[in-house]
Write a protein that binds this DNA or RNA. Structure first.
Lengths: 118, 118
DNA sequence: ACTAGGTACCTTGCTTTGCAAGGTACCTGT
DNA sequence: ACAGGTACCTTGCAAAGCAAGGTACCTAGT
């Protein structure tokens, strides 16, 4: 019996801390990608992240059962690990979307109060 | 000659990581507050933070010259440290406001792409 | 065949930082 | 004088982003 444990409360904490797993899950929701694809997409969205961060992060997501991968050959170069979201990953993504909504509205509330007062 | 160094680039990294200094600066922009005031305001905005985080954070902000404090007596209980933003703090806050705008629009772009595809 | 260069994946060590837990000191009311 | 509330702070731990460095594969040119 394999138990998939993913503590959503902890993920909320991590979002405040890292705010990186969320965009990566969002990107993977579009379809299978390998590391360079993800880096490209994040860069295009102005979110900077480097290899040394991404690889451990993908491993972490895999250990938690949010993503899985498949080796695929490349036409030019070494084989690639193509990642996809699992069902659990999709559920977590939905939670994180909600968390993001709450977080950004919290901050925007504070922001509006500031703009009004200045 | 005392040099006030506050690396805005580093602050951007920290925002992605912690996302706590920013709301605290926003709250202090409203006027002088002591720790409990700040905790109350953060809680009201659904941003959870505890004493053990806040005190070191305020010290850090003070060391970096973003805030300063003044002791004031309380009508009931021990004296309080009332914090206010410095000029530097105000400038940094403006930077962080911009960073927040960029960050949230990045994520919202990814979010919209996801919503469209699902 | 060999080697140079590009691509892809991964690890190690460091630093920062949020947090839980615990601690000190002050002030007030009984 | 002491109990309870308020306020400030510190210590030790764990998580995670990052810089830097490393391994392996594949292709193309010699």
């Amino acid at each position: 019996m394999q138990q998939v444990t993913f503590n959503v409360e902890n993920a909320r904490v991590q979002m405040r801390k890292g705010l990186l797993e969320f965009p990566i899950l969002l990107i993977l929701a579009e379809g299978e990608m390998y590391a360079s694809d993800i880096l490209r997409k994040l860069k295009a969205a102005d979110l900077i992240i480097v290899e040394g961060t991404l690889y451990p992060l993908l491993s972490r997501l895999r250990k938690n059962g949010l993503v899985e991968y498949e080796w695929k050959e490349s036409k030019s170069g070494p084989p690639r690990k193509y990642y996809t979201l699992t069902k659990v990953g999709e559920r977590v993504l939905d939670e994180l979307l909600e968390t993001w909504t709450i977080l950004s509205s919290s901050i925007n509330t504070l922001k509006k109060a500031y703009e009004k007062s200045s």
